[in-house]
Design a binder for these strands. Structure first.
Length: 489
RNA sequence: CGGAAUGUAGCGCAGCCCGGUAGCGCACACGCCUGGGGGGCGUGGGGUCGCAGGUUCAAAUCCUGUCAUUCCGACCA
């Protein structure tokens, strides 16, 4: 079979780029660093989105929409946040073009149309949202305020990669306001659990929940919680973050409420988000050298039926019947009834696009009363009696979902290694990759030094961490627990 | 934003050094044969050679600039 993708072992980055393009998930656009998400890719994102949206709503959140532009004066109100994002902001300075008198048919920015105040294209929406919340919150009766928005944001990245880091990306950002610190922290952690649940049970991507160090924390947050996943090349991917913002934004935007004793207090805030980056995580967690592998719960098409060698009345009849029955059970199914393409070509094509289950219906099999059922995750093929094929497929989709998670988890678990010295740390990083648990003295200085020496960063301090006395691998200073290091995307 | 490489048909590439008719494979269209893992033969269509300048009788080819992509670094979700 002709290989369409660069094998992972040969060049992992190239494999990733190949798969995004060949499976038609996305492509580069005419705008530097910005991608076009193609229908095949967008369908998966839509599935992610609708599931997450359901989960947000089930936990009491509602959707709203805030503007793309943030006046500079609002943007700079929360200083740390502004400083953190300043270097990567796109800024609108003019509101009009005009014909260029020197070059016919060309346009130029109208110098007379300079904006009084520049508009920052949102890299995140805290500023505009908190400036709005100020007007919405007066009393403890207005709290909690639990709002999510689905939006695009822009961060002017120097180096971009499809899905993993693009200048514009799609995400959801939740912004909540609470009367007490405890309640806000609870919200932050609840969302972290929700993200982990989504990652593991829908994306089949195991994650480690943890807290970011001060150095890796979101600008403007008191605490950043994260879910960290491990990709097949041994690099970590930050898949989602949930921030406890304390009263930082409330103070910056004067968001106060009267408590039940009629005393004024600043509200407590959270924000949290996951983005189209999850698509990158999905690809790099499950896919192989033959193409994309999509967990059934997120697949746009869960089952494809291929007539062998080509459509024929008898085959069509069986296919139609199976489709009706599968659809009745909530399974999305397509019949690839294209007489011009040969079965071998179709097999390869659907494998490249990651369809979880393929049914091959041919006359030879039908005479024996069976259908060939092929699963994408293991490439296993079985002959299943026609009568039982629908139930078999429903069960199989479930098995595939579980198998993908278990396989990813086994890989992840076998790539968490303890290191007790810098030498050990470096050799694990070079030879094996993955997560490394090591003692750290708790200072930003040491963290940065380790990054300079090894390129590895502290991904998080795992929430379920065991306490264990030890010595920092760099400075030898005392440490009370190991933290999770890795090279990261 | 610094270093390197690349940009020629939808995709992958040759041609460039040494200036002179724009080529190959795949894909595409049509026909015939085929048909259980990316078929075979035949015929055919498709090009502002990334873009803008310059040198020259003549530029895909030489020069300058610019844009984009990939990789490496710094930065970042």
């Amino acid at each position: 079979m002709a290989k369409v993708l660069t094998p992972r072992a040969e060049d992992y980055s190239q494999w990733y780029n190949d798969i995004v393009k060949k499976a038609q998930l996305a492509e580069n656009s005419a705008v530097r660093g910005c991608m076009v998400i193609k229908p095949t890719g967008y369908a998966i994102w839509e599935n992610m989105k609708s599931q997450l949206d359901r989960m947000f709503k089930d936990t009491g959140h509602v959707n709203a929409y805030f503007p793309l532009f943030v006046p500079k004066s609002l943007f700079e109100a929360e200083e740390k946040n502004a400083e953190g994002f300043a270097k990567e902001c796109a800024v609108v300075t003019h509101y009009r073009l005009r014909n260029n008198p020197d070059e016919k048919g060309k346009l130029m920015v109208d110098p007379d149309a300079r904006l009084e105040e520049e508009l920052v294209v949102r890299p995140t929406s805290e500023a505009i949202i908190w400036n709005t919340y100020k007007n919405w919150i007066n009393s403890y009766r207005d709290l909690p305020l639990l709002i999510n928005q689905w939006a695009n944001v822009v961060r002017w990245e120097m180096r971009t990669r499809l899905f993993l880091r693009t200048a514009e990306f799609l995400w959801q950002e939740g912004h909540t306001a609470h009367a007490t610190k405890e309640e806000a922290i609870e919200e932050t952690k609840m969302i972290l659990d929700l993200y982990a649940d989504f990652a593991e049970n829908y994306m089949a991507m195991p994650v480690i929940k943890g807290v970011k160090t001060a150095n890796e924390r979101f600008a403007g947050a008191d605490d950043t919680y994260t879910i960290e996943a491990l990709m097949q090349d041994g690099k970590a991917l930050q898949a989602g973050t949930s921030h406890f913002l304390g009263q930082n934004f409330a103070k910056a935007f004067e968001v106060k409420f009267s408590n039940s004793n009629n005393k004024e207090e600043y509200v407590w805030a959270t924000s949290w988000g996951v983005s189209t980056r999850l698509m990158g995580g999905l690809i790099m967690t499950h896919s192989d050298d033959d193409g994309l592998v999509v967990p059934p719960k997120l697949a746009a098409t869960q089952v494809v039926i291929v007539p062998i060698p080509k459509p024929k009345d008898e085959i069509d009849e069986v296919a139609e019947r199976i489709m009706v029955e599968l659809k009745a059970k909530g399974v999305s199914v397509k019949y690839d009834r294209d007489a011009k393409k040969r079965p071998g070509f179709k097999f390869a094509e659907h494998e490249l696009k990651g369809v979880p289950v393929r049914l091959g219906i041919g006359m030879r099999d039908l005479e024996k009363g069976v259908i060939e059922v092929a699963r994408r995750d293991t490439k296993e093929k079985n002959s299943i009696p026609v009568d039982g094929v629908v139930d078999h497929v429903v069960q199989l989709l479930d098995d595939i979902q579980n198998n993908l998670f278990n396989k990813a988890k086994a890989y992840r678990d076998s790539h968490i290694t303890k290191a007790d010295s810098m030498e050990e740390f470096k050799s694990i990083l070079e030879e094996k990759g993955g997560f490394i648990l090591a003692h750290w003295d708790g200072t930003t200085e040491t963290e940065i030094k380790i990054k300079e020496l090894t390129k590895a960063t502290i991904r998080c301090i795992p929430l379920d961490n065991e306490k264990e006395a030890g010595q920092c691998i760099l400075t030898g200073k005392p440490s009370e627990q190991r933290v999770l290091f890795a090279k990261a995307y």
